[in-house]
Design a binder for these strands. Structure first.
Lengths: 346, 346
DNA sequence: CTGAAAGCGCTAACAA
DNA sequence: TTGTTAGCGCTTTCAG
């Protein structure tokens, strides 16, 4: 009866490498060589194969190739933000761009994936753990998100952007981050050294290590003068910076200095101060964090801390590549240097 | 010599379905059934298989499954924006969210991919055409981008978000958009009916059909009063709205009405007007487009046109699903209704 | 330089 | 309900 070899009537299925081989009158292996660079193939044969490929409209079946090669050529960039905040942060774009460019060098492709809630995280975790991608880059995780643990349990090569929250994760994962605590300490001290008082802070989400670290630095700088009412929590959004600052002003009408844990939030803070008739920096000095594009769009421009986003991305890809290449003795952690940038706001 | 069956020493390779079958003492097919829902398997056997799976830490090899099934379960959301504008638009996030949620219903996963320049577009085109994904959703394309043509030439099921620029593409692709021309005509007429003159416009990129359509509507409303110097081109960014409006004011100091082709640009326009000491809406009436979150953040809030983003996303997924399911007689095009929203700015 | 053949790990049709 | 078997389409030795 019909063996598989015989059902090869030119029906409507996608052409395979065998169809090409048959048409070109060569073996299957030769076609494979041609579509993989054409090395070690006589030019005449190569041309014949290419002609057959064009004639048939052939293109390789990626699933088959993945199976045979044992890898997919795809890397996931995982963003697990909730709701509206997805993509609000311009750094996502910068990261994505840098990854994409960098990965192309090693013939890999970047796939951006998102998870908004636990259910999506689990579904995404399955998807990734199961071999859809060769590796993953994970945007700064929040405490309590199950995804990181899920991925660590799988064998998926992984690099986290920013320091994970749990110490266990900090030790067993690869990640690249900055010393948030030290940088924030420096900023707060700078404000203090100007004789400003009281000085307050709008923090990032305290479920992130960055949010915590920056608050810890602020707190250490203030020492015994620290009071809990000098702190209000934001969520990285401009909006939260605005509202937080309004609250702070209400509690401390004589506020003289403000450390805002991100430039985006600081831009909101600047609006709040202007709306309340405060002069920056004369009456209240404002410092941000990140040195993102938002820092240049306020008036005056923001004094801030340069967060080396691009270097972070580059190093993350390098580390991931090492792990993918099999040359990786255990997790690698990296703390990149920051830089204090003085502009008009403080 | 060693046949494949014998090299099964518990070495360090990932466990396969055969390992599980052997350990559980069942056939391979049974294991397959269990990992695909466990229907038609006796409970006792199912448990045994699941135990073996846990014991071995088995998880399916996605590439093999894809090959056997002939599909991948992944859908691409393609964003081909240049540079910084990547992700600046909050609608990207809204689209991504809606897609993701909607796709999960049919067991598929959303992969976001980006292309910044022609080289990346080509590389991405190869990647997608070659079977990495089952289908694709393409964000509003710009004229001259090779990606759409590339994808149309492949057999990849595809739905475009917004109307393509070329008529050929409009006819041969599936897409879902709005009637930009008619909506813009309505807005401009509304301004005119208030007796405002002169009225000008900041357009979107004229390489997009939305940019063009909205300008065309404006132009038709003005009729013989139209002058080229009432038009300045933006790029959807807030920044470009600001700069464009500044230019317009210079040329038309008595400007009385302004139609800005997106709310994001309109927010920039409002800043420019305030910086120039113009009162909105008393001295100049401003209308935006999209009814995006930005429309509520200006003071006064923006009069605008509601762009049904979410419905667009839902319909796009529906159309794509139809095409994936094989039930699709040719391309499907959809024009969704818009709605004029009157707020404080005009 | 080239063809043949042995897998890659899984699904699905078939027979039992 | 279950095991067996024939592919899915490609890469990669291995001979020649």
């Amino acid at each position: 009866m019909a063996t598989s070899a015989q059902r090869g009537d030119a029906s409507h299925r996608r052409p395979t490498i065998d169809d090409v081989a048959r048409l070109a009158g060569v073996g299957r292996g030769t076609v494979s060589r041609v579509i993989n660079g054409g090395h070690n193939v006589r030019p005449a044969v190569r041309d014949a194969v290419n002609e057959a490929i064009d004639a048939l409209g052939y293109s390789v079946n990626q699933s088959a190739r993945n199976l045979a090669r044992g890898r997919t050529g795809s890397i996931a960039y995982i963003i697990s933000e909730r709701g509206d905040r997805l993509f609000e942060d311009p750094n996502f774009g910068l990261f994505a761009r840098t990854f994409s460019r960098q990965l192309r060098g090693s013939g890999r492709h970047l796939l951006i994936t998102t998870a908004e809630d636990e259910e999506e995280e689990n579904s995404l975790g399955d998807y990734l753990a199961v071999g859809h991608v060769d590796g993953a880059l994970l945007a700064l995780p929040h405490q309590g998100e199950p995804l990181l643990k899920r991925l660590m349990a799988s064998r998926l090569p992984l690099v986290v952007l920013g320091k994970p929250v749990d110490t266990d994760e900090q030790e067993r994962c690869s990640w690249v981050g900055i010393d948030d605590e030290a940088a924030a300490y420096g900023v707060a001290n700078y404000l203090l050294a100007q004789g400003r008082w009281p000085i307050a802070t709008v923090t990032g989400p305290l479920a992130t290590s960055s949010g915590r670290g920056r608050l810890a630095g602020f707190r250490r700088a203030l020492g015994r003068q620290f009071r809990q009412n000098l702190v209000v929590q934001g969520d990285w959004s401009s909006q939260s910076g605005y509202l937080g600052t309004k609250d702070l002003l209400e509690c401390h009408p004589t506020l003289a200095g403000l450390f805002v844990a991100s430039d985006l939030m600081a831009s909101g803070a600047m609006r709040a101060l202007r709306d309340s008739g405060r002069l920056v920096p004369e009456e209240v000095a404002v410092a941000g964090f990140d040195d993102s594009p938002a820092a240049l769009m306020t008036d005056p421009q923001l004094t801030t801390v340069r967060h080396p986003f691009e270097e972070t991305a580059l190093e993350a890809v390098r580390i991931l590549n090492d792990r993918l290449g099999g040359r990786a003795a255990g997790p690698e952690q990296l703390l990149l240097p920051t830089e204090f940038v003085i502009r008009g706001s403080a």
